[in-house]
Write a protein that binds this DNA or RNA. Structure first.
Lengths: 235, 235
DNA sequence: TTTTTTATGTGCGTTACCCCGCATAAGGGT
DNA sequence: ACCCTTATGCGGGGTAACGCACATAAAAAA
């Protein structure tokens, strides 16, 4: 059988998956699209199959800050599962690609009647909370260079590809720093041959080298039996 | 009837509350006690009635950082509800006082069989995630002074009292800054007559003044019908 | 082509916070 | 009374990141 492209869905028992999948619609998400906006109602939930979505907290009078990242290891629309109709967080498509979409009502019905789904989603909620807390500490303690490296690696892991479309300006909003700060760090990496970039395109050249440059938070993603299986692509 | 001291429990239908309460044990939590430690199993859940617990992320090689705060408006042991046996977060008693305790097994049974409890807890999970994200952005963008003021106010709100036991050293771990940074900000507040302090005791003198000094995050706590009712004490 | 837009490079003064070390003073224990 | 632990005050030097302004260059639009 063709592999189920989303890790959470892959954990469903076959019977449940088949029923659930009948409510899923494949969609293509374009770069820059905003899936959820703080305060606005959530209509659909998404299971990324090959795309990457940033969860952004918008602080009044400041640039945005990424608090979490969702790829094929997760889902979007957690608030729906928690019985809330909207999210305080903006969800922005940061790596375009494909996802599976389901309407809020159908998802709620499934979530409340399918125990395995229920369990899987709540487990993911835990993992996501951990990720947000980790990111919070990382943003507080680590320097831009280390955070940039971590960010590029996490993106690569989720996109299963080492080059993506991404301006320094955009990155600065993810990391919550100035654009110039990103440029400076990126220039350093390019000089060392770790990455190459030009006008909105970035390519990772030396994965190992980037890992060495990344802060320790990379590698402290959810692990062990307690969380969603550490989702790190094979080398 | 005597008021139920924990907001979450107060939201339970009377019938469910009575059954649930039979499994609750009143306990006194002392200052400095660690309820949960990252990686260690969670044995009990807690519903604070008059105490304050800090949720701390421990970053390797750095001081700790508070990512959330739980008082009578919330509960401790969320991971249990999410089907996880331990938490990546340390829970530390920061304002001593009373709470209601329940064993993990009993709570799980109730959580899985009592729909209103289920709903309430998941709603709180959402609120807590929002708080963590908010704190993340606050720690990134706001200066120590504003964050200290916010922290004191949030503590006051949850402790229902304006003076508490608290050293600058301890505060520095909450805010993720140096002890001297806290001392400096606190000295400024004392000079303006907003607070007074001495050797591990802090008293809020001018609530309004502190609000003016706090960053905008104070007042952006969960609000509206979508979240746990904004829990802010009457003046 | 030429023009316009957009992405990145660069420099410069400013600031909040860091790290380190030590002085002072309040309380608790003996 | 005394010591001794602990909480806070204070200074000096260093730096990561800020804000701003402007130069350059690639791409897109005309």
């Amino acid at each position: 059988m063709a592999a189920i492209p989303n890790i959470l869905l892959r954990l469903l028992p076959r019977k449940d998956y088949l029923r659930f999948a009948s409510g899923l619609t494949p969609v293509t998400l374009e770069f820059g699209k905003v899936l959820y906006e703080p305060g606005k109602p959530i209509r659909d939930v998404y299971f990324p199959s090959a795309c990457l979505i940033s969860l952004l907290k918008i602080a009044a009078g400041h640039r945005a800050l990424e608090v979490g990242m969702v790829g094929p290891e997760g889902m979007l629309g957690i608030p729906i599962a928690l019985g809330i109709g909207s999210s305080p967080i903006r969800a922005l498509v940061q790596g375009e690609g494909t996802a599976l979409r389901m309407g809020k009502a159908r998802f709620l019905k499934e979530f409340n009647s399918c125990a395995p789904l229920h369990r899987i989603v709540l487990t993911y909620v835990h993992a996501l909370m951990g990720q947000i807390a980790q990111t919070a500490a990382c943003n507080r303690f680590h320097v831009v260079e280390g955070r940039l490296a971590r960010w590029l690696l996490m993106t690569r892991d989720r996109m299963a590809s080492g080059d993506f479309r991404m301006t320094h300006e955009f990155l600065s909003h993810m990391l919550g720093v100035r654009r110039e700060g990103v440029s400076e760090a990126a220039a350093g990496f390019q000089e060392k041959g770790l990455i190459e970039y030009s006008r909105g395109k970035i390519r990772i050249l030396n994965h190992r080298g980037l890992e060495a440059a990344a802060c320790s938070c990379y590698g402290e993603s959810p692990k062990g039996p307690e969380a969603i299986p550490a989702w790190r692509p094979a080398r």
